[in-house]
Structures are given as structure tokens and as C-alpha cells.
Design a protein around this nucleic acid. Structure first.
Lengths: 149, 149
DNA sequence: TTTCAATCGGACAATAAGAGTCTTATAATC
DNA sequence: GATTATAAGACTCTTATTGTCCGATTGAAA
């Protein structure tokens, strides 16, 4: 019942990207520092985000990752689900094939409510707005600060 | 980001027990049928519940498991946490050692809100009340119904 | 056109967790 | 003491998590 590191890193990265001027490209190295995570692992995360269309990747000398303007208003839910797939608090909440107890099981409805509550919060968290909050609060980073390769 | 089977089974079992007359003992076999799960695995789950005090276990010829009256009003949160430990949607929500980004990270507050929302729902789900709902809705089980050893 | 600096993508690996089984105690009743 | 319960621990099998490493591609600039 816990978010994966990959999804956590994805959220961090996306907020960082949303805080940059539009159409800025950020290198993987920069993003790894911003997200405080291993760069190689972030590679995988960024590839997932790119496949989901949440991020544009550019190769080559001036390459890097870019947040399309449309997705500045993506939500934390979008990001998490791009990495982990649809959020399901319990296996019985699988939309595809229903649980055999669903009809009468009183717990089922509770799981639905709990999941909906959590999802609603994540759906309300919009990247650009989060980036603004971060900008307002974030201390100036120290030179020679810790660094993840 | 998903409940374990163990916790799901635990909730099923606890609701079943809450639906029995006070001080009734139910055998592991009966509970396995009620929870639709393998009996041996349920053994482990019941041991955890017993260690947490949510259930009383009795050995011997007339043994079985019993829900103490006090815990008829336990919540689904209590049950889940007895099996899985404290609920944490993200690793950064660990109360013990704080996240280094907590001060400024706008995602942190969102995780807190999402987790609180889910926890509140589970905290509101009281076993005895759930058992009543189940009794009102549950169809009469067929003889020769599927059966888990 | 060569070089350089990026990302991509696949293979690999170490560890942990999840889900369950099996066997041997241990306890309580008859 | 025989029978019928649960307790507890060892064991297994599979999958997910969290990475790492490296060669292949790509694109721009010298």
C-alpha cells in the first residue's frame, strides 16, 4: 500500500519541469539532481513519462526533456498513473473483472470510497500550481550540495 | 499502491466475525470459507490479528477464533494496520524520520492530504456496522458451494 | 564529416515482498 | 491418552522493486 520510488521521482521531476520557463529543455542530469535520485534509474522513469506523452524527449547534443505546455496542467494523478497504471487500493476494485462478492460485501464500498477520496486529492494537484508553491518556498540551493550520479 | 491479500482477507474475516453472536468461536475452516481464501494462509493472517489483540484464539478441541466485544467497533483501518503496519501512501510520510524536502516540497502536502482522506474513510468503517449491512444484503449461501482448503 | 553530448533500449542483478504450503509443536477437551 | 484445534517456523515459488551497465541512436556543432 505504498507508492513506488519510480512514481515518487516522476512527480518530483514533473513539478521541477513545470517550474521552468515554457519550452525549456532539462537534461537528465539536471532532473536527477532536482529529484534527488539516481540518474540511471530516472532514465527509466522518464522513458515511461515520454511514452505516456507527459514529457517530450529530445536526443542529441542539445537534447533533454521538455514539458509540453498542455501538460503543465496535468495532475499528480496523471503522473502516478503514467508510471504505475490505474490506481487501485484493493484488487477487488479492478474495473475489468468484477469481484464475486461485490454485490453484498460491505467492505467493497468502503474501498471504493477510500480510493475515490485519495484520487480526488491527487486529481486536484496541478503541476503548474505546485511549481509555483515550490518557487515561493524553496530555499536557494547551496553550491556543492549533495549530488546523485 | 495496493492492499495485500493478507489485509483484504483480514477485513473479510473480521466482518464475518462481527456478524456472529457475541462470544461465538469460529473455526479457521469456517473463516477460510467465509473469506474465500486458502485456510493455511489465513492461519498466518489470524495469528497477526491475534497478536494485535483484535481476535482471541483458542486451541484444542473446542477451539477457534473469537472477536472480543470491544473490538466489534474496531475499524477497517485498525484491521489493515494490524496486518500491514501504519498506512503510508508514500515513503516520505514516515513519521519517524522526516523527508529532507518536506519544508518546501509541494507534493508532500498533497500526499498528506490524500493519505488523510483515505484513512478517514477507513476509520469510519466500523466492523459491527459493516456486518449488519452484510447480513441485510448477503444471499443465502448454496450448499456445495465452492470451498477453499 | 567527424565528433561530441545527449537520450534510448535492452540485459542484467540484487533484494525484498507477496502469497502460499508443509510440518512439527502445543493445547484443550473428551 | 486420543482427538481435534491452533501456533509457529521453515520452506518455496513467483513477481515486483530498484537499480546498474552498456551499446545503439540521434542531432547539432565544429
Amino acid at each position: 500500500m505504498q507508492l513506488t520510488r519510480a512514481a515518487d521521482y516522476a512527480v518530483r521531476v514533473m513539478i521541477h519541469l513545470a517550474g521552468l520557463p515554457p519550452e525549456t529543455r532539462a537534461s537528465r542530469a539536471e532532473l536527477a539532481i532536482a529529484a534527488e535520485c539516481p540518474e540511471q534509474f530516472l532514465s527509466k522513469v522518464l522513458q515511461s513519462l515520454a511514452r505516456a506523452g507527459l514529457v517530450l524527449s529530445h536526443r542529441g547534443n542539445t537534447g533533454g526533456f521538455e514539458l509540453p505546455n498542455i501538460h503543465r496542467r496535468a495532475t499528480m494523478l496523471d503522473v502516478v498513473e503514467a508510471i504505475e497504471g490505474p490506481m487501485r487500493l484493493n484488487i477487488c476494485l479492478n474495473a475489468d473483472r468484477a469481484c464475486s462478492r461485490e454485490e453484498w460485501c460491505p467492505a467493497h464500498q468502503v474501498w471504493v470510497k477510500a480510493q475515490t477520496a485519495a484520487v480526488q486529492v491527487l486529481r486536484g494537484a496541478i503541476l503548474s500550481e505546485l511549481a509555483e508553491k515550490a518557487a515561493a518556498r524553496k530555499p536557494i540551493p547551496l553550491a556543492g550540495a549533495p549530488h546523485w550520479n
